[in-house]
Design a protein around this nucleic acid. Structure first.
Lengths: 225, 225
DNA sequence: ATCGGCAATCGTGTATGCAAATCTTCCTTT
DNA sequence: AAAGGAAGATTTGCATACACGATTGCCGAT
């Protein structure tokens, strides 16, 4: 379980704790349902309870931990149902973004999107999953930005962040990068044509296809409730 | 400027402060850009800085206040551009909800939606804007719930809450309730037919028509930037 | 007179202390 | 032996105290 790796110096202590905890939760180092004792976390970070409390409040607002008044914080436990609900919204937001992007992207943005897609061909060929993962993120980022709506970009990124834990294993499963890239290709074409509705349809299908990892993840969750 | 009205007893102090501040901000009692001094707020609520800080952190996560490290918190100032961006997402989320609702609502839910719509006829006749406002909220709530996706319901309500300040004057402008109810009628029909795509189109138009108040609101905002 | 630098002041960030609420454990009672 | 309850322990919520960074006002220099 890491303690403070990554950017640190000059940053607020509560902020460092927040980032470290967020990382531990999304990577799964802190399992859902884990009790988060303030004093104990303070010891771990060499801090008092005060910055820990602030970090926990922040994480609660992000939905990563759940706070019961006077009963402490626990790592948010997500029912399978809720994960699917989050995933559905995520897919719809992505579809919404690409629909707007197909209508609004500048020629420069469109060719930048195509360039990212072309670059990913090498990663797939070499079987470099990490590299494809990065390019995949950049691809979706480019689509967010293409909406020309900074608020939507923020919300889309925040939602994706919250889903990070579930997407992590996503591309690891057999044949995913190849298929993912093929779907990206179709998306690029629709965006190039400015066909927003078609792009949205393709994106929903793309997200749904990518949801395979969700089902395997679902098995890790408490079966009941 | 209210201090503590509403639910109070038994609730956490920081929670009470959070709710009171959120109310003051959305009603406009605390103008955008106002510096929020921790000590001063503590005095106002008869509390120390600690619960005030926790409330401010929470509000920052909701987007109602902005926190600059070591420089304190201010009521979030929204540029006209940002308000329009928020509004666009809001409209798209509403459209998304009604599209899903049209496909998924049970017969009971559909008739409940129609009943709310019929009830609103009286409010319009009597010119009771407050009552129509309430029914309008219930109408949109019913659509959210119709998605059968609790996460989407939460997010939609949270977004609407953030927009509350801008919608407040919305229905006050001439002829709005009549027109709004007419548009609701078309929406109900599309939902009844299960025509999600058409319902989504109508909802976008409905939200866009309702955006008139935004333009008048825009004049209240700092013109530059 | 204006600009740059320095110091005092103010406010936030963090630590610590105290009280109330919750949880635990052990004892009593049926 | 099991259930209920009371006392102790633990933990959160809030208050107070301290330290550092930022802002502001003043003073001197140009």
């Amino acid at each position: 379980m890491n303690s403070d790796q990554g950017a640190a110096a000059g940053m607020l202590l509560s902020e460092r704790i927040r980032l470290a905890l967020a990382d531990d939760i999304t990577t799964g180092a802190l399992a859902p349902g884990t009790q988060l004792d303030e004093q104990q976390l303070g010891d771990r970070f060499g801090a008092s309870r005060t910055p820990v409390r602030e970090a926990l409040r922040q994480l609660a607002a992000e939905g990563l931990v759940e706070m019961r008044p006077r009963r402490g914080a626990v790592v948010a436990v997500l029912t399978t149902e809720r994960v699917f609900e989050m995933f559905e919204l995520s897919a719809e937001i992505e579809a919404l973004c690409v629909r707007l992007a197909a209508w609004r992207m500048t020629p420069v943005e469109r060719s930048a999107l195509r360039r990212i897609h072309e670059e990913s061909a090498y990663a797939v060929m070499r079987g470099d999953v990490d590299e494809y993962d990065r390019l995949n993120w950049r691809f979706h980022d480019a689509i967010y930005e293409g909406t020309h709506n900074a608020y939507i970009v923020e919300q889309a990124k925040a939602l994706r962040e919250r889903m990070a834990a579930f997407r992590r294993a996503q591309l690891r499963q057999g044949g995913r990068p190849e298929r993912s890239r093929h779907e990206h290709g179709e998306l690029v074409e629709a965006v190039m044509r400015g066909d927003g509705e078609q792009a949205a349809k393709l994106m929903r299908a793309h997200m749904f296809n990518a949801s395979g990892a969700l089902e395997s993840f679902a098995r890790l969750l408490p079966g009941a409730d």
